[in-house]
Computed example of a mutant assay.
Amino acid sequence: MGEKRLVTKNRYGKWEVRAPSVVHPDSTHETREEAESAAMEFVEKAGGGYVDVIL
């Protein structure tokens, strides 16, 4: 199955990349596109998985 990362918007209007059930994000970004790119890069480096974007 591999790694899973979520891309979500935080209460300050920034986009975060995080693993499910984790409190602190792996990274925070100004745009959704930047966050999606970072999430995909993380998953690829981990050997595969998927990214969910939660709007």
Rank of each mutant, 00 (worst) to 15 (best):
M1S: 14
M1G: 15
G2K: 10
E3T: 15
E3G: 12
E3N: 14
E3W: 14
K4P: 03
K4G: 09
K4R: 15
K4S: 13
K4W: 12
R5Q: 14
R5W: 08
R5C: 11
R5M: 13
R5I: 05
L6Y: 15
V7R: 03
T8V: 12
K9M: 15
Y12M: 08
G13C: 08
G13H: 06
G13R: 05
K14M: 02
W15R: 15
W15A: 13
E16I: 08
E16R: 05
V17D: 03
R18E: 04
R18F: 02
R18Q: 03
P20K: 04
P20C: 02
S21W: 12
S21T: 08
S21V: 05
V22W: 03
V22Y: 05
V22Q: 10
V22A: 09
V23M: 04
H24T: 13
H24W: 10
H24C: 07
P25Q: 02
D26A: 03
S27R: 03
T28P: 01
H29I: 01
H29K: 03
H29W: 06
H29P: 02
E30F: 08
T31S: 13
E34V: 06
E34R: 03
A35T: 09
E36W: 00
E36V: 14
S37H: 11
S37F: 09
S37P: 00
S37Y: 09
M40G: 09
M40E: 15
E41P: 00
F42G: 01
E44G: 07
E44V: 13
E44N: 13
K45R: 13
K45C: 02
K45Y: 07
A46R: 11
G47M: 06
G48C: 06
G48Y: 05
G49A: 00
G49H: 04
V51Y: 00
V51H: 01
V53A: 03
I54P: 04
L55R: 05
L55P: 06
L55S: 05
L55A: 03
L55Q: 03
